[in-house]
Design a protein around this nucleic acid. Structure first.
Ligand SMILES: [Mn+2]
Ligand SMILES: [Mn+2]
Ligand SMILES: [Zn+2]
Ligand SMILES: [Zn+2]
Lengths: 136, 136
DNA sequence: TCTTGACTTAGACAAAGTCCAGGGTACGAT
DNA sequence: ATCGTACCCTGGACTTTGTCTAAGTCAAGA
């Protein structure tokens, strides 16, 4: 059983076929699927799984911090199982491919106190954009 | 007449009451309104202006580079008239307020070649997040 | 003033996501 | 092993955000 499902169970959550399949679909590196893409792949393994359940399960995984929501464009949110190693994203202008990247240093450090307007700033998300090798 | 409308006209575009009102609504600093917020404020000045025209006009302004689209959450895009001075955004977790901020250095410089996966990287968008003074 | 192509409008449509009532099931208790 | 039930899943209605189109209107040059 995956880490993810084990953690869900430790929280007292029922282990269902649907949750198992969603967790399996999200396995791997550089995975940044939309909810509908997750649904499409889940259906291949469990044809009767509903869209609502995919949304619910993804939402639960985000709540417990095992999956991250990524909004790289103005379209559908993407769901990223790489929740334990902080990282940023590199997105192709043309095809939309998303890679995990690890910039130097802490991006927060670049924002001087005078530019914080009294906010308690605690996070920085960086989206790098460019053309991928296939699209060049 | 605003710069913005002057530029529109230089491009051979007709100067209509609707375009004038949308440009007026977007005037100011730290303005990051959604299309529906622009529409609501435009209606106060020109009650018959349609949603479609607001979307069309905002899209045109983005095309000519006088307005920037900002996606700070997974919700509606925001429209930002501060298109000439490069900047990033600081967003309140709780109330969603958006401020323009100017971090030190070039955010692109933090991404080493080995982390570029063969992409031609040309832009970086940073969203800083925290609690604003009112929400603390 | 007249003409005309560009602009605007209302409403249909689409994509992404939320919510609900009713039926189904995982799992602790027996 | 079976039961009971609290929690989960489903289909579909609904909401939000955005796009598109056909028909009417009008800004601006002739
Ligand atoms: Mn990622
Ligand atoms: Mn801005
Ligand atoms: Zn590409
Ligand atoms: Zn706030």
């Amino acid at each position: 059983m995956s880490d993810l499902l084990e953690r869900l169970r430790e929280r007292g959550w029922r282990l269902t076929a649907q949750r198992r399949v969603v967790a399996e679909v999200l396995d791997g590196d550089h995975v940044h699927l939309t909810a509908d893409e997750v649904h499409a792949r889940a259906i291949e393994r469990l044809p009767e799984i509903s869209r609502a359940t995919v949304y619910n399960t993804l939402g639960e995984m985000v709540t417990i911090g095992e999956v991250i929501e990524v909004a790289t464009d103005g379209r559908a949110k993407r769901y990223d199982p790489n929740a334990h190693r902080p990282h940023q994203h590199l997105v192709c202008f043309r095809c939309g491919t998303v890679r995990d990247v690890h910039p130097h240093g802490d991006p927060l450090a670049a924002l001087p106190p005078a530019e914080r307007f009294g906010f308690t700033v605690s996070a920085a998300e960086v989206t790098y954009r460019g053309l991928c090798p296939d699209c060049s």
